[in-house]
Design a protein around this nucleic acid. Structure first.
Lengths: 146, 146
DNA sequence: ATAATAAAGGATAAAATAGTCTTTTATTAT
DNA sequence: ATAATAAAAGACTATTTTATCCTTTATTAT
């Protein structure tokens, strides 16, 4: 198990892929090409994108020349929006030891240590925008494949 | 889903509990009392401790007055040993986006960001020793219950 | 030695996550 | 209008994680 669920890993990679394939050009990219581009099981990814689409994190149109894309507002969104949508925000605010009542006044042994780490994760994902890596992805400097 | 699996959360809380209940006094503490003390399902916790015992992370003896305890060496171990034993060390070294081939020369978009965070997690868990919170747990300043 | 105790071991069950397949709906080009 | 295309929706399957139960083994006190 990583930091995120598999669903969330696929979601982030897919959104990065859609971003770099459609930014500016007002094009669309289909599920097959995305699945191929990020090495993910196509039908599972379809479900994930369906959900992201419903939530307005990605845009889509049906029919010929249809597919997924990102509007300008979506390109500016932080990665934390994807993570929160898919995995919830336990990773940002939950107790590292799984204690519901853990808080400043009733802390678990690692409360402060985890607060620090969770804040760093939150900050990092909030600072990083979906469209931020488009150039490097186009030039192949960055990878989205296994 | 938190940072760790539920199994790992229970494991850490249980080990903290055993530590503060048996450190120095050369006593033992039974599975029932541990499960109660950390709000965990008893049979599931039994499995987890069985595993930790096999791996030498906790000590145990059977029979009357038996139970779990920690020797001095175990009290000095870092928390990272528990996490590595239970969840593996993907959390310390794995790619945040789940890419097997992700590395310095073939990085995912978040490679450096995640490296930084993973290092902080690793450092924190390596610095923190199992017996470190015994006093605060005895005085009730820290909590292991939901 | 024997009975009582407590963990170890093994088999099974439930829930959550991951993944697949088929049908329906919306869009576009002809 | 119609056929082709591609996502949406829904039902279903598989795997992994979480959790329970029952039997066996080791230890101790009597």
């Amino acid at each position: 198990m990583g930091i995120f669920s598999k669903t969330c890993e696929y979601a982030i990679r897919a959104v990065f892929f859609i971003a770099h394939r459609t930014a500016g050009q007002s094009g669309r990219v289909g599920i097959k090409e995305i699945a191929l581009g990020i090495d993910s099981p196509e039908p599972f990814l379809a479900k994930i994108l369906q959900d992201l689409s419903r939530r307005g994190i990605v845009q889509s149109t049906k029919g010929p020349n249809g597919g997924f894309y990102l509007d300008n507002a979506s390109l500016e969104r932080p990665l934390s929006d994807i993570v929160a949508a898919v995995d919830g925000n336990d990773i940002f605010f939950g107790c590292g030891l799984g204690l519901k009542q853990c808080s400043e006044i009733n802390p678990c042994p690692l409360h402060n240590e985890f607060k620090d780490i969770r804040n760093k994760i939150h900050f990092m994902l909030h600072e990083t925008k979906i469209g931020e890596f488009n150039n490097e992805l186009v030039t192949g400097m960055l990878s989205l494949k296994k």
